[in-house]
Amino acid sequence: MSDALPPFQRFLDAQRDAVWRFLVRSVGAAEAEDCFQETFIAALRAYPRLRADSNLRAWVLTIAHRKALDAHRARARRAVPVADIDAADARAESNPAARDEALWDAVSELPARQRSAVTLRYIADLPHRDIAAAIGCSEEAARRSLSEGLAKLRKVVPA
């Protein structure tokens, strides 16, 4: 039924894995659950007003992205000590799993816009146009944030 929105349950079934994956990677497993609930509750409220031809994945990931930003802000207010870069470097050299972990630590410490660009591009698999819409900037600025973010990650975790 291309002229109508799918029933919400079908939309949830189709998008839940991508949203979960995105949230686990952008806020961590501990906070993913709350963000997931808030994302889909917000989606449910807005759902009937959505245009039937909308890109549903980009739409829901944009909401998830906002919830992830909120979670990051809340965490910053709670002032949890940031990960020790030296420790991350040391771990990065020892084995691939530790290197991955160091990379995720580094992602969570990127400035908000760069983190959004990196997670929306590579985890959510959104095109630059949708990333720009999600962040609320130009496509050019989104590309710039993405490459700046990647450059920082390369410093922490050399390829």
């Binding site: 949830l12 079934d13 839940r16 894995d17 949203v19 979960w20 994956r21 686990v24 990677r25 497993a29 993913a32 659950e33 997931f36 609930q37 889909f40 799993a97 290197r99 991955d100 972990e101 990379l103 995720w104 992602v107 990196v118 997670t119 590579y122 985890i123 990647l150 990650l153 390369r154 975790v157 390829a159």
Partner: peptide
């Protein structure tokens, strides 16, 4: 780096990740 980002932490893309998503749903 991109490869790690795409695959992500092991728990997020294997069966456990999918079933965690199903439970959250």
């Amino acid at each position: 780096i991109v490869e790690v980002l795409r695959l992500g932490p092991a728990c997020a893309h294997d069966g456990a990740g999918a079933s965690a998503a199903a439970q959250a749903a």
